[in-house]
Amino acid sequence: MKQITDFTIIRRQQLGESYFSLTLRHPGLLPPIAAGQFVEVEVCNSREVLLRRPISIHDVDSQNQTLSLLIQTVGKGTRRLADLREGDTLNLVYPLGRGFAVAGANPLLVGGGAGIAPLLYLAKCYREKGIRPTILLGGRTEALIPVREEFEAIGATGCATEDGSLGEKGLVTQHSLFNLGYDHICTCGPTPMMKAVGRHALAKGIPCEVSLENMMACGIGACLCCVTDTDQGHKCVCKEGPVFDVARLTKWLSI
């Protein structure tokens, strides 16, 4: 069930220049949360920002009843969120959207930039099922791959940077771990990366889920602003996604 809840920021961590993470707790119990679901964060005290900002859920710690968000400072909304401090309150509408299926016995998770965020909780959900996913993280340069140690503890983890500052030089699709007979692929990141991964999966007949990041207003399927063109017509990314089976997105893949 979706809810509107005030959380307290119990930990704020700066991760390089452009990323930070917020660990949040509220007095009650967290509802069931699927990997790939997101929250709509209220941005307070801003003359410029009216709407909430959709942020994917980075991690859920059911033992401590906390959830964390990994945020890249990219625009006026996230810049305001970057000013928040430990002890501050953050109002969330959550958990929203349809997450990953956590399917396959030998899955590959491919993340790029801020799209790495939902993959940590996804990797943990696989581990819960006794499956060790392979993880590929990509970015232009090392500083744009914000977290990787936690992934390394879960499964084989490779990094690809365009400048070679971390891991193999090149794109994730050129990485030596990319094409090793996986039976399921999950990806989140920049659109060109997700399309390249999606086309590869489709060509190889591997089931593939992509997590889209369209601009949203409501986050709950009411305003119809965030649609993507699927094989069944326009669908709300906030409600029918953000995670889609790439087989439904042939139009999106071909643009």
Partner: peptide, 30 residues
């Protein structure tokens, strides 16, 4: 929501832009 005689797909994305103390939409009666 606005209901028409036939099913409508509405306008292409992007259909929304945040503006000072407001927002623009161009959903187009999907």
């Amino acid at each position: 929501k606005g209901t028409t005689g036939e099913k409508r797909q509405g306008n292409p994305y992007p259909r929304m832009a945040e503006t000072p103390a407001g927002m623009l939409n161009a959903v187009g009666l999907q």
